[in-house]
Design a protein around this nucleic acid. Structure first.
Length: 828
RNA sequence: GCCCGAGUGGCGGAAUUGGUAUACGCGUUCGACUCAAAAUCGAAUGGAGUUAUCCAUGUGGGUUCAAGUCCCACCUCGGGCACCA
């Protein structure tokens, strides 16, 4: 008899899986495929976190479950390596981000292997590998060629600590998602991806996704479609304030290296003759008594009157300086009159034009018609500044405006003024016009430099790589773009790279992609609106270009909850409440215990607190699995062959070498059963367990699947376990505890094919009938299954029961028989 | 403020379609084994009570033969959005 030694078993199987490349996959025609992936990790210096383990194990359970069912299952792995943490660490320690990243990747790989994941290691990708980012740059160029990657000068989120701009999705409560510092608005020329081009489809397709409702709702809200109209308001010519020849006053703004190209929308709405407003209520136009412009409104400088100019510019300056937090916290309306007027096209009234920061520059046209009688915010503003409030009746929606749909979602800002990212494959000619780097020159390699530190110049550290900056395109000398791409760009297509990770000709090889993808299961606990929206956007774009045969990249999304510290708070190194998964393994519990525990901890999509004592409970369960096998093969100690005497264990058992099983015995009542009866009883629980575990995994109820296995083992301890029971146990256990299960199957000489249950074992001859009186449980009777077909007979039997009689002396009003629930309710 | 989740023993959590509330695990108690401890094995374990029985799924109502589950109102916690016209 051997003791359960997880570390020894796990090492054996991990070595075997590694050497045989056990999980290597290739396209197989005729075999149903399945592709699963987790959201690939950012490999931090701290190594794997228990949260990673939960995330990866969910994917692994499904991977192994479907492999055991004979599907061609691909489960790749990758690392999202570009980004600020590596660069900041490099700045702090003086080491290169490349070296630091390489170390972290090696550590993550080693740790993932110690968890026994069924990963196809030939499909390992790394976003900062030039072989990979060559194709990220290729993707960028496709978007650039179609006008979906463009430059625009506008006010952007700027993190003064990280010295870079940020996308809307990376600003959380007015703070930088990385360093937590308050962000500012800064006028800069930046690169954008035109995600708004796909806003409609991104929204309408959400309903067809097998994704959690809460993620779908978040995406819908994020896209925020509003149907309304744009209405033109003419600025009054007789206004003394108006002068079309006046030069604009330049305010704010950061240096930019290329000339500003105003887009069509801006030049139209900042025309000096009219203001276009967006409204969802064009039918309320009769009540529009003033116009409000955002402080950043592009045409503001042109229309402001001389008298008001100073006050307006002062207001604009202070509004821009205000952090977003201040703007959010202070809901008190502020604003100033511009001195200009416009004509309400419906009433022909001359109405004043104001500036106020409750109007947002980035939404609609940055200008609204205020209807204080209808809109709470406008009313508040009107009351504060004593503007007219006119009660109004509604008119035909389409009378004065042109129908227009607007989205809350803005275009995706993708340039970053940082070193450790994918270089944007663009160069500027002497006029400052951007040109694509020819595809044959890709990848644009990230140059090795000495000093990664960003500065306030608004340019990344790449600007210091003087030689690298120069590039010749079509015989013309040009200057390279020094910004790098947002890391989310690198992760917007990695799922497709998995299909052909080493292809030199394509970002993804057409046949491989159409075999493997879209991804069947994608699992993660973050990025509900950013990454998960971006991959959908790129998918639609590349489908339109003919590169992808599907328009949604992810069929099913599993959004797992977090694992918190034992105190219920978020785990963090600084608070000292973090659990290191490698410590749990090395303490002797092993990877199987860790994996199984994290599946057992609770529903996968709910947050859960770590409980060290419960880890021990799962270890005991695996130990009991092991002991069943050991006693099966070690003769006298076997639960199924040891005769129970009611006395202390026989001497022969005491003489056994140290074995945790030596006290396994059978309860007296169960020993009365003959061998034949034993196995028929086991057939029932065996089939029940197969059904439960299979169905639970299909429903992602991993916690109850493990509970079902525990119950099964408890039963086998009582009844004794035959070969069939042990083989079934090992097969069902394998997705959760693959090392132990592999060892068990090897000892049993069995394969790992997923077992099927036979319904015939699940139908018993007699069943327990529940008897309620007035809805309260009063009795239980054994009845024959065939009697359930005969309601009269059942009721007769129930009413004849002694226990029931006590309650029915005063007469029976009504009886209800529910066959499916095997229940009778008697109303007295 | 608006939109989602969730609230069940001492604790984590089960209960899949309205039908036996508390599966499974932790903890606790008792017993076996041991010189002893650990480990292991077995038993018990929602509360009150003399058996009967009564009370328990955040609170208060309602529907129903029957409610953790459905409806109405409210409370608490967590998450998302937050002047989006």
């Amino acid at each position: 008899m051997e003791r359960y030694e997880p570390l020894k078993i796990e090492q054996k199987w991990q070595k075997k899986w590694d050497e045989t490349e056990a999980f290597r996959t290739s396209e197989k025609s005729g075999t149903p495929k399945m592709m699963l992936a987790e959201m690939f990790p950012y490999p931090s210096g701290a190594g794997l976190h228990v949260g990673h383990v939960r995330n990866f194990t969910i994917v692994d359970v499904l991977t192994r479950f479907y492999r055991q069912q004979g599907l061609n299952v691909m489960r790749p792995f990758g690392y999202d390596t570009f980004g600020l943490p590596a660069e900041n660490y490099a700045i702090k320690t003086g080491r290169s981000p490349k070296d630091v990243t390489a170390e972290n990747v090696a550590n993550f790989r080693k740790q993932a292997k110690r968890l026994g994941y069924a990963i196809d290691w030939s499909r390992e990708i790394n976003t900062s590998d030039p072989e990979y980012y060559k194709w990220t740059q290729w993707c960028f160029l496709q978007l650039f060629k179609k006008g979906l990657a463009y430059q625009k000068e506008s006010y952007q989120w700027w993190c003064p600590v990280d010295q870079t701009v940020l996308a809307n999705e990376q600003v959380e409560n007015g703070c930088c998602w990385r360093c937590g510092h308050e962000v500012e608005k800064k006028k800069m020329k930046q690169w954008f991806f035109k995600i708004t081009e796909y806003a409609d489809e991104l929204l309408s397709e959400i309903d067809n996704l097998e994704w959690p409702e809460r993620i779908k709702t978040m995406q819908k809200n994020w896209i925020g479609r509003s149907v309304g109209a744009e209405i033109e308001f003419t600025i009054t010519q007789d206004s003394n304030s108006f002068a079309s020849s006046r030069q604009p006053v330049v305010t704010g703004g950061a240096s930019s290296i290329a000339p500003v190209v105003a887009n069509a929308h801006e030049s139209e709405s900042c025309s000096n003759r009219k203001i276009i407003v967006f409204t969802t209520r064009p039918d309320t136009i009769l009540g529009a008594t003033f116009i409000v412009l955002a402080p950043e409104y592009p045409g503001l400088d042109y229309l402001v009157s001389d008298d008001a100019r100073e006050a307006v510019m002062e207001y604009k300056k202070s509004a821009l300086k205000k952090s977003e937090i201040e703007r959010q916290e202070n809901k008190e309306k502020t604003g100033v009159f511009t001195g200009a007027f416009a004509v309400n096209p419906a009433t022909k009234e001359k109405i004043p034009i104001w500036v106020a920061d409750y109007v947002l520059a980035g939404y609609g046209t940055g200008a609204i018609m205020a209807v204080p009688a209808m809109d709470e915010r406008d009313r508040e503003f009107a009351e504060k500044f004593d503007l007219p409030i006119v009660e109004t009746e509604l008119i035909d929606r389409d009378l004065y405006g042109t129908p227009k749909t607007t989205y809350r979602m803005r275009d995706w800002l993708i340039s970053r003024q940082r070193y450790w990212g994918c270089p944007i494959p663009i160069a500027y000619d002497s006029n400052g016009e951007p040109h694509a780097i020819p595809e044959e020159q890709l990848p644009v390699l990230l140059p090795e430099i000495e000093d990664y530190k960003p500065d306030s110049s608004g340019r990344s550290a790449l600007a210091k790589a003087k030689d690298w900056l120069k590039v010749e395109i079509d015989g013309e000398e040009m200057t390279r773009e020094t910004d790098t791409l947002d890391g989310y760009a690198c992760s917007s297509w990695y799922l497709w790279r998995y299909a052909s990770p080493h292809d030199k000709e394509h970002a993804w090889e057409p046949e491989a992609i159409s075999y493997w993808e879209p991804v069947d299961y994608y699992c993660g606990g973050d990025h509900a609106v950013a990454h998960l929206l971006y991959v959908r956007f790129w998918c639609k774009f590349f489908a339109d270009q003919g590169y992808l045969p599907f328009r949604e990249p992810i069929k099913r999304l599993l959004y797992n909850g977090y694992i918190n510290a034992p105190d219920g708070k978020k785990m963090s190194k600084s608070k000292g409440n973090a659990i290191d998964p490698l410590d749990v393994i090395n303490d002797g519990y092993g990877a199987d215990t860790l994996r199984t525990y994290e599946m057992f901890i609770g529903p996968y999509d709910m947050d859960a607190a770590w409980d060290t004592r419960s880890v021990g409970g799962v270890y005991r369960f695996l130990n009991r699995c092991w002991n069943l096998i050991e006693s099966h093969f070690s003769g006298p100690a076997s639960p199924s062959s040891t005769s129970y005497t009611g006395q202390p264990a026989e001497p022969s058992l005491r003489d056994e070498p140290v074995g945790d099983v030596r006290n396994i015995r059978l309860s007296q009542s169960n020993r009365k059963l003959s061998r034949e009866n034993d196995s028929s009883i086991n057939a029932v629980i065996r089939n029940k367990t197969i059904k439960k575990v299979t169905e639970d995994i299909h429903r992602y109820n991993f916690n109850t699947a493990v509970a079902g296995l525990m119950e099964y083992v408890n039963e086998l301890y009582k009844t004794g376990a035959e070969q069939d029971d042990l083989v079934t146990l090992a097969k069902l256990l394998k997705p959760f505890a693959p090392h132990l299960a592999s060892e068990m199957l090897e000892k049993l000489g069995a394969d790992d094919e997923w077992p099927k249950w036979d319904e015939k074992y699940l139908v018993a001859d007699s069943v327990e009938l529940v008897v309620q009186i007035n809805g309260k449980l009063r009795a239980k009777l054994q009845v024959n299954v065939e009697d359930l077909e005969n309601e009269d007979k059942i009721i007769e039997m129930v009413l004849a029961d002694e226990k029931v009689k006590k309650f029915t002396e005063s007469g029976v009003k009504k009886t209800i028989f529910v066959k499916k629930a095997k229940l009778v309710n008697i109303v007295v």
